[in-house]
Design a protein around this nucleic acid. Structure first.
Length: 413
RNA sequence: CGGGCUGUGGUGUAACGGUAGCACGCAUGCUUUGGGAGCAGGUAGUCUGAGUUCGAAUCUCAGCAGCCCGACCA
């Protein structure tokens, strides 16, 4: 992609009214534009990041046998009434010209369960799992922290349907493993934290928390083992001895919840009378689970965790492009040739081909945008290019072909 | 929903109650080019509504908006 063709507009100044790192960097880098409190436009550069994150999520969801679908955001009132959720405070409501009332989806059990009702008849139809990546709406009393808490945000929501609690339990932990893989690929260090189940369940649920100061939740955790609890249910306090391993003291941190998993049980299947016939021909309620990840929030969390003074440092799998190719004075021809070759090789590259930008401007933009690999051609590099992998020494000058091989090796590790 | 802070060109900022200025951007021309270039002459602004005053960006009131703290967070 050529810089001069792609819509990129970085800002020279920090935004006036933002304090959180993700809001500041994503604004300056031209990834997102704030439209109102908790409402963001994803500009082309930001959309690429979101798509990369979503690609990782899709791969891992598909790998555990979940099928992707897309449900509506505009949901008629009767669906919410069926589960007595029409009056939850976070539901945005709307009325159309004929007087019909709707709620904008903040989660989608109500829509999906009736769809499954017409398609699940027998124990042979179970288990099954469906997910979507979709915009959710929540009337948050206080949107804040850039992408961390919005009124409108993207969510990957997965719903699973099982014959019994035992099979739900099996799948529940399968999803937990898939989530660990997703966050590991996104280089988000998460703690799996026990938390309250809200209205869904008396059992604990599990949250995937990134421990950073900018987080909204308070987490108690053990550094020596995997013990971790959300403050809302915690029966420990900071400096207590870990109740699980007794080898270390409990620490306290803020956390950003980037994912969660719930055992829904039969709450929604009861409301929709979602039943199946077991092998004895007897009707049984379907047992459900639901599992969420916030891709846009994850994007914000990545920035909170990965930036320096100069800009964002995207993880490999979330970076908007794999290579930032820069033509500096005297290197235009070589950079053009490199771009052509990269395109032929199918390498995902952003090529800064501007001839009206100074070297300083190009390099500063590259720092701000934060792509992990930088390749420069200039008078200095002569017929070669200079390759710099983040956090590594610049390579000696390379031929274009060697540069591509080096970059492919870098991304393969 | 309670509290605090803040609203000035596209962006960031300045102005005692008295001519709205600066920097960046943008457009034009010439010169420049390994860390946000130089010169020239241009372009564009006081959140909304009332009030006080001879005169309001500035003071008062109301509203709206954003950020931060708290409550909330399926």
């Amino acid at each position: 992609m050529r810089f001069t063709q792609f819509f990129i507009r970085t800002q020279k100044e920090w935004p006036r009214d933002e304090e959180s790192a993700n809001a500041k960097f994503l604004h300056r880098g031209g990834f997102v534009e704030k439209i109102g409190a908790g409402i963001h436009a994803f500009l082309p550069l930001g959309l690429r990041v979101l798509d990369k994150i979503n690609r990782v999520i899709r791969e891992e969801m598909n790998a555990i046998g979940a099928s992707e679908l897309l449900l509506p955001a505009l949901i008629p009132k009767k669906y919410w009434e069926a589960t007595d959720r029409w009056n939850v405070p976070i539901l945005y409501k709307s009325t159309d010209s004929s007087g019909q009332e709707y709620g904008l989806g903040f989660t989608h059990e109500e829509v999906l369960t009736p769809i499954l009702k017409r398609r699940i008849q027998s124990f042979r139809d179970l288990p099954t799992a469906l997910y979507q990546i979709q915009t959710k709406f929540r009337d948050e009393p206080r949107a804040r922290f850039g992408l961390i808490r919005g009124k409108e945000f993207t969510m990957k929501d997965l719903y699973s349907f099982h014959a019994d609690a035992k099979d739900l339990e099996r799948f529940y932990w399968t999803v937990a493993d898939a989530y660990k893989k997703i966050f590991s690929r996104l280089e988000l260090p998460v703690r799996v934290v026990e938390a309250a189940g809200g209205d869904f369940t008396k059992e604990y649920t599990h949250e995937f928390q990134v421990l950073v100061p900018a987080g909204e939740d308070t987490i108690f955790y053990c550094e020596a083992c995997d013990f971790a609890q959300n403050k809302e249910i915690a029966n420990v306090a900071a400096l207590d001895t870990c109740p699980k391993c007794a080898r270390a003291k409990i620490k306290e941190s803020n956390g950003i919840e980037v994912g969660n998993i719930f055992r829904l049980g039969t709450k929604f299947s009861e409301a929709a009378n979602l039943v199946y016939k077991d092998s004895a021909g007897k009707e049984q309620l379907v047992v459900m689970g639901s599992y969420g990840i916030g891709p846009s929030r994850a994007m914000g969390a990545i920035v909170e965790l990965n930036h320096d003074d100069a800009g964002i440092r995207w993880p490999k799998e979330a970076a908007p492009f794999r290579i930032h190719l820069i033509a500096l004075p005297g290197g235009e021809k070589q950079a053009d040739a490199a771009y052509k070759y990269f395109a032929e090789q199918g390498v995902d590259v952003l090529y800064d081909d501007r001839n009206d930008a100074t070297p300083g401007e190009k390099l500063t933009d590259a720092d701000l945008i934060g792509i992990p690999v930088r390749i420069i051609a200039s008078t200095r590099t002569a017929n070669m290019v200079e390759v710099t992998m983040r956090d590594e020494k610049p390579f000696p000058f390379q031929s274009i072909e060697a540069a591509v091989l080096a970059v492919q090796r870098y991304y393969a590790r």
